[in-house]
């Protein structure tokens, strides 16, 4: 069950779940300016703030997607706190960072599964980057395969044979795995 404190927040959470363009625009207007201010005050740029903001919305989507999420504060506050934690994690993961010592920046408690999501989010960005670089056919096959749609059904969708899909799925996945494994950022994050 998805529960927010106000009907407005409830509506926004549902909008995120349905990738509603208008709702996403509204969250940008409502929350991003304060995230930009805070990240800029803490050794980041507007572009960094926009990045962590997008990651925060995706992390929130993942929580809402589970169908079991109770928001105990205002949605705006929650998104801001996720953004701050994302930015702090990013600073911590960046060996070259020489700015404000971390102990000077406040951290606020979040649920354990959200912390895990935040820690995974940079890695996820790498995955998406290489996934987006694949051809459309590869992306569709892998998306459906990861969704556990049987290869036979995928073959029907694409009007081809199951054996072709099986081979194609392997080739697409191999391309993706190799690209991720060769990614410098991925190797840096692996060691954290």
């Amino acid at each position: 069950m998805i529960q927010a404190q106000t009907p407005r927040d409830q509506k926004i959470l549902e909008g995120i779940l349905h990738a509603d363009n208008q709702v996403i625009k509204q969250i940008y207007d409502d929350v991003l300016p304060s995230v930009i201010r805070w990240v800029s005050e803490n050794n980041g740029t507007e572009s960094d703030a926009r990045d962590v903001f997008q990651e925060a919305i995706i992390a929130l989507f993942r929580k809402v997607e589970t169908g079991n999420f109770t928001l105990t504060c205002k949605l705006k506050s929650y998104i801001r706190i996720v953004c701050r934690n994302l930015w702090l994690t990013r600073i911590r993961n960046n060996k070259k960072f020489t700015g404000t010592p971390l102990e000077e920046i406040e951290e606020v408690k979040l649920e354990n599964d959200m912390i895990e999501r935040i820690e995974q989010s940079e890695k996820e960005q790498v995955f998406f980057k290489h996934f987006d670089a694949l051809g459309e056919n590869c992306r569709n096959i892998l998306k459906w395969f990861f969704e556990k749609i049987p290869l036979k059904k995928i073959a029907e969708k694409l009007d081809t044979s199951e054996s072709y899909i099986k081979k194609r799925k392997f080739l697409c996945k191999e391309k993706l795995v190799k690209a991720v494994q060769a990614d410098l950022k991925f190797n840096e994050l692996k060691n954290h």
Binding site: I16, L17, H18, A19, D20, N21, I24, K25, Y28, R50, Q54, I57, I58, F61, R62, E65, Q120, K123, E124, F127, F128, F131, L142, K143, F146, E147, K148, K173, L176, V177, V180
Partner: peptide, 23 residues
């Protein structure tokens, strides 16, 4: 395992496209 968990489902890809466009 991580690739499968991250990339499965249409919705997350749809959301990323919308986020990209709005951004």
């Amino acid at each position: 395992r991580q690739l499968s968990e991250t990339l499965k489902g249409e919705k997350v890809h749809e959301l990323r496209n919308v986020l990209k466009e709005v951004n």
